[in-house]
């Protein structure tokens, strides 16, 4: 069991910290069911690459594996910190939760932010200044993002559906992209790498558009060739060729 753990996910992987080269940054949001494994792995990865990033879960409750499949550990979103989950599970059964990698995961998460947040409770556009200590919080103080990346198709469905319900009062476009990742530590690592690659590709295109000399514009004609929003499907298509095991879906929605 020990050797499996050493290979296992999170903390052991080098953070992939990049030096910040400044420049334009797209704002990202990662989403999975419980805001614990997949979305947090990619949250950490994007934050380490200096992207502004926040993360959410679309489930009704945070569910972590328990001693058996019928006995999950269930927590409230927005009310339970990763730290308290860590301490509780550590006290409950240190061996079990070390062996299944849960403690390792929670240990990583509590260094990233306070606790799991629920997508449906997120008040888009409300300032997030109180999250200043979260990793990746710099740049998302305004409480909006440019790109939402979900890690499972039903999370994507939940996000798009929720945006229908909100009635798009902010008039702000947002690209919602699903990257299908199986919910285990190993796949989350792979998925995290894929998401970072996607983020890099998108950001490159967005930065290119902004760097064009403003005098080159003639109200759209030549500029449309380099327009970021228009290039998104192309970028995803190219990315999909590089990451065939992570099927993607995309839409342009509104906050």
């Amino acid at each position: 069991m020990a050797q499996i753990q050493s290979k296992g996910a999170n903390g052991t992987a080098p953070g992939g910290q990049r030096t910040d080269e400044g420049g334009f940054k797209l704002k990202f949001c990662t989403v999975c069911a419980s805001n614990n494994n997949r979305s947090m792995e990619s949250h950490l990865r994007l934050a380490a690459a200096n992207y502004p990033v926040i993360s959410f879960g679309t489930g009704s409750l945070v569910r972590l594996p328990g001693p058996s499949i019928t006995q999950p550990n269930v927590y409230q979103f927005n009310k339970t910190s990763y730290d308290s989950m860590y301490k509780e599970l550590d006290a409950k059964d240190h061996r079990l939760y070390t062996a299944n990698g849960i403690l390792n995961m929670l240990g990583r998460n509590r260094d990233v932010k306070w606790g799991p947040e629920r997508w449906q409770d997120w008040r888009v556009g409300v300032p997030r200044l109180e999250h200043a200590k979260d990793q990746g919080s710099q740049g998302v103080e305004g409480g909006v993002v440019d790109v939402v990346i979900t890690c499972e198709e039903r999370c994507w469905d939940a996000v798009v559906d929720d945006l229908f319900n909100r009635g798009s009062p902010l008039n702000r476009p947002v690209h919602v992209i699903n990257v299908d990742i199986k919910d285990n530590h190993e796949e989350a690592l792979v998925g995290g790498r894929g998401i970072l690659d996607l983020a890099d590709s998108l950001n490159k295109a967005a930065a290119e558009e902004r760097n064009l000399s403003p005098t080159a514009f003639d109200s759209g004609h030549t500029a449309s060739r380099a327009n970021f929003d228009e290039r998104v499907p192309e970028i995803i298509g190219e990315w999909q060729e590089r990451w065939p095991s992570l099927p993607a879906v995309w839409t342009l929605a509104w906050f």
Binding site: M1, I4, Q5, K7, G8, A9, A33, S34, N36, N37, G59, S60, L61, R63, L64, P65, I69, P72, A99, N100, G101, Q120, E152, A158, K182, D183, N184, H185, E186, E187
Partner: peptide, 14 residues
């Protein structure tokens, strides 16, 4: 632990 499914897919509430 690395490949054990984490999601408890009983989350059908909504």
């Amino acid at each position: 632990p690395a490949t054990a499914p984490l999601g408890i897919e009983e989350d059908d509430d909504e």
